[in-house]
């Protein structure tokens, strides 16, 4: 039991948020990351979904608390409240759906105004396994990300390609910011917390489970 607890302890806790148009594959991305399998027949998310997982980055155990928001417009008022305090944001678009890419700017603006100015943001082009239906080129999306000073990766929630890399990449950027002193992990608003603080103050839930998604 003690070893179990040690395994579940972590050094830092980061809050992530996944946003993007409905049908882009946000929930499947989260499910693939947490459960390592594709979520077949995924329905529209009602409100928000939640998952957490501990990853190992830069010699540190980092616990990610990930909020998967509904992309549908009718849940927008609910999901906006989840931006606050997010250390990382994943803006997901569907590479086979041009509209979802066109709306990227709006999502980026939301993330920058509702989260924090220094929130680490990554653009995720999902469904990269469907190359024959591609509507957004890699180069175009990459340039857009560069212009907006954000990260970019393409993934496939179906095959799992690039999914873990997305989360690790953002976590590494945040970790670098902490080590450079740009983010104070002891403040609640930064979206990051030190593990010892969490374990000591909020025993139970946060420190006990390494995978809590079955969405």
């Amino acid at each position: 039991m003690a070893s179990e607890k040690e395994k579940d302890q972590y050094d830092y806790l980061f809050k992530f948020i996944i946003i993007g148009d409905a049908g882009a594959g946000k929930s499947c991305l989260l499910h693939q990351f947490i459960e390592n399998r594709y979520k077949k027949g995924s329905s529209h998310t009602i409100g928000v979904e939640f998952g957490s997982k501990i990853i190992h980055v830069g010699g540190r155990n980092i616990k990610l608390q990930i909020w998967d928001t509904a992309g549908q417009e009718r849940y927008r008022s609910v999901t906006r409240s989840y931006y606050r305090g997010a250390a990382g944001a994943l803006i997901v678009y569907d590479i086979t759906n041009r509209d979802s890419y066109n709306h990227l700017v709006n999502w980026l603006q939301d993330a920058r105004t509702l989260a924090r100015a220094d929130t680490s943001i990554i653009t995720v082009g999902n469904k990269c396994d469907m190359k024959d239906k591609r509507a957004v080129t890699f180069l175009e999306a990459s340039r857009c990300a560069q212009e907006n000073d954000i990260l970019f990766l393409e993934t496939s929630a179906l095959t799992g390609e690039g999914v873990e890399d997305v989360f690790i990449k953002v976590a590494r950027v945040i970790l670098n910011k902490i080590e450079d002193g740009l983010i104070d992990p002891n403040t609640m608003v930064s979206g990051t917390h030190t593990g010892s603080q969490r374990i000591g103050s909020d025993s139970g839930g946060e420190a006990m489970s390494s995978k809590t998604c079955s969405c």
């Binding site: 939640f50 608390q65 909020w67 839930g205 006990m208």
Partner: peptide
């Protein structure tokens, strides 16, 4: 009791799921 004492939303969600 545990749920009502959770101060953070993520803590509340994790407690709920376990």
């Amino acid at each position: 009791g545990d749920l009502l004492q959770r101060s953070s939303i993520s803590g509340l969600a994790e407690m709920l799921l376990e």
